[in-house]
Amino acid sequence: MTGILERSMIDAIATALFAHALILRGGFNFAGGEETPPGLSGAAARSILLVGQAGAAPWPHFLRWKESQSRTIADPLDIWSREVIGAAAKKFGARAVSPSDRPYLPFQQWGMRAEGLRPSPLGILMHPQYGLWHAYRGALLFEDEIALQEPRGVIHLCDTCLEKPCLKSCPVDAYSADGFAHETCLVHVRGQNGAPCRTGGCLDRNACPYGTDYRYPPEVQAFHMAAFARL
C-alpha cells in the first residue's frame, strides 16, 4: 500500500503555486485497475492534482518571466507553465504533466472528474464561478493517494441559459450542434474580417453571460488568438 498525501501537503503545494497566481483545480484518486499515466518513479500514478488559473491572474507573472526570454521563443506560456509546475513537482515529489504533452492526456476528462464540470456548447468546461474564463495549465501525478473528496452537485450554468448567445455571435457560425468548424474559424480569424476576433478574442466566448468578472482582458485574448492562428 502507498501512503496518503495529507491535507497539509496539499495546502503547501497550493501556497507554492499561488506565488505565481496558479491554483489547484481539484484532484482525485485513480480507481483500482484504472489505466493511469506513470508517476515520478515510472510506476502507475495513484492520484492527481490539477493546476490551473481563474481569470487572467497569472498574466503579470508570465509577462515578467517572458521579458527575460528570447523574443523568438515558441509557445512561451506553455514553457512558463511547465517551469512553474515542474518546480512544484520537484519540491513535492510528483511528476508534472502538461496539456500540450504528446500523446495528449485527457485533461478535460480529468477536469470534469476533479471539479464536476461539464462542457459548454463551445466545448470549454463551464465553471460555476469562473464561467468560460479559466484554464488547466498542468497536473501533478503522485504515487500516493490524496485526502480529497470528489465534488458533488455542481451547477451546470449552461442548463439555465435559454438564449445561448455563445452560439449566435460568431460571424461564420464556427460553433454549432455539429461541433467546432476549426478550418472555417481559422480562415476567418486570419482574414480581413477577422480583426475583432484577433484583437478582442472569440465573439462567441465573450457573449457568454457567466463569469464576466473573470473575463480575460483584450490583450490576453489577443495573445491566445494569435497562438491559435499562429499569427
Rank of each mutant, 00 (worst) to 15 (best):
M225R: 08
L40H: 11
K164D: 11
Y136Q: 02
Y130F: 13
F142W: 01
L125T: 00
A57C: 00
P38V: 12
D144S: 02
I79Y: 02
R215E: 00
I13E: 08
S47L: 06
L141G: 03
E115K: 08
S70N: 04
M126A: 02
T160R: 10
P209F: 02
R205K: 15
P209M: 03
L5W: 06
P99S: 13
Q192T: 10
S81A: 14
A89E: 14
C202M: 13
G55K: 01
N29Q: 07
V97G: 10
Q53K: 06
G131E: 05
H182E: 12
H156V: 11
P76T: 01
V51W: 01
A114L: 08
F142L: 11
W65Y: 03
Q108D: 11
D75W: 13
G39D: 13
E219F: 12
T160D: 11
A21S: 15
M126R: 07
I155F: 01
R113D: 02
D101S: 12
F180P: 03
L40N: 07
F92P: 09
C161Y: 05
V187F: 09
S169H: 12
P99A: 07
L122Y: 08
L77G: 12
R230A: 15
P103V: 14
G39E: 10
S8Q: 12
A88R: 04
A88E: 05
A147V: 00
R137V: 00
E67I: 08
S70K: 06
G194H: 04
P106M: 07
D178I: 10
M9N: 09
A94V: 11
R230G: 15
G52F: 00
L186P: 09
L167W: 04
S176Y: 08
A21K: 14
E115W: 01
A114G: 13
F180G: 09
Q108S: 14
K91G: 01
L140Y: 01
G191D: 06
P99F: 14
E83C: 02
R215Y: 00
M225H: 07
F223V: 05
A114P: 11
A139D: 04
E150Q: 04
I48E: 05
P99R: 13
P38E: 11
S98F: 06
G191I: 06
F180S: 10
A226M: 02
D75G: 08
H224V: 07
Y130T: 14
Y104L: 09
E34G: 03
